[in-house]
Computed example of a mutant assay.
Amino acid sequence: MALRVLWRRMTNAMDRFHQIAFSPKYLLFTNIGISVGLSMVGDTMEQSYERLIGELPDWNRTRTIRMGISGLTVGLVCHYWYQHLDYLFPKRTYKVVVVKILLDQFICSPFYIAVFFLTMAILEDNTWEELEQEIREKALVLYAAEWTVWPLAQFINFLLIKPQYRVFYDNTISLGYDIYTSQVKYRKKPEPKDNS
């Protein structure tokens, strides 16, 4: 009996939290929190792998915090981008979904990648030249990965997911992409071979 009461209270509390977190008043904070948290989880998972294979001696907390901050900026972009798309194209027809996917891939994806690299450059105190170099070397790799993951994921997102859950859905799919983003961002250049 006590277990049943405890269960009911717990489910009621979770339901109240859900209603508040995904309400219009708090949705921005929820989306940012999810983006920050999962960006940090993705980087931690990538660093765990790098430590396992011997590429990284210890967990770099600063790197994880920076990836989390990049999640904040990207969370803002996604939150307002999805609201704007839903305002411009409120229907859920196949034609509208395809238009949203194309706009997402051709406008938001490059912008999202640029915001990511700009945020990281600011956090790492990089010069403008270093930022340009990193974008030249790594942005196209991430953009190509975007085309392999997101068209199908966004088809489901725009067709089936309620608008208030779009960023949440996006971030659950993005966890794997965040791992890959961390890998691309922090990939070491191969050492030049000594031909002497």
Rank of each mutant, 00 (worst) to 15 (best):
L3N: 09
V5E: 15
R9Q: 15
T11S: 13
T11G: 01
N12S: 15
H18V: 04
H18Q: 09
Q19N: 14
I20H: 08
A21L: 12
S23K: 13
N31C: 03
I32L: 15
V36T: 10
L38E: 03
G42A: 11
T44P: 01
Q47E: 10
L52M: 13
G54R: 02
L56A: 09
L56F: 07
D58S: 12
N60M: 07
N60F: 07
N60I: 14
R61I: 15
T64K: 02
I65D: 02
R66E: 10
M67A: 05
T73N: 08
V74H: 01
V74K: 03
L76H: 08
L76C: 14
H79M: 02
H79E: 03
Q83V: 00
Q83G: 15
Q83P: 00
H84D: 06
P90N: 06
P90F: 09
R92I: 10
K95P: 00
V96M: 06
V97Q: 03
V97T: 15
V97P: 01
K100L: 00
K100T: 03
I101W: 05
L103C: 09
Q105Y: 02
S109D: 10
Y112L: 11
T119F: 07
T119K: 06
A121E: 03
I122W: 05
I122F: 08
L123H: 06
E124I: 05
N126P: 00
E129M: 09
E130L: 04
Q133C: 02
Q133P: 00
E134A: 11
E134M: 07
A139M: 08
L140C: 10
V141Y: 06
E146N: 12
E146V: 06
E146P: 00
V149R: 05
A153W: 09
Q154H: 15
F155C: 13
F155V: 03
N157L: 11
L159Y: 14
L159P: 01
I161Q: 07
P163G: 09
Q164F: 06
Q164E: 14
Q164A: 10
T172F: 15
G176Y: 07
D178G: 05
Y180H: 13
S182I: 06
Q183I: 04
V184L: 03
Y186S: 02
R187D: 08
K193N: 09
K193Q: 13
K193E: 15
D194I: 14
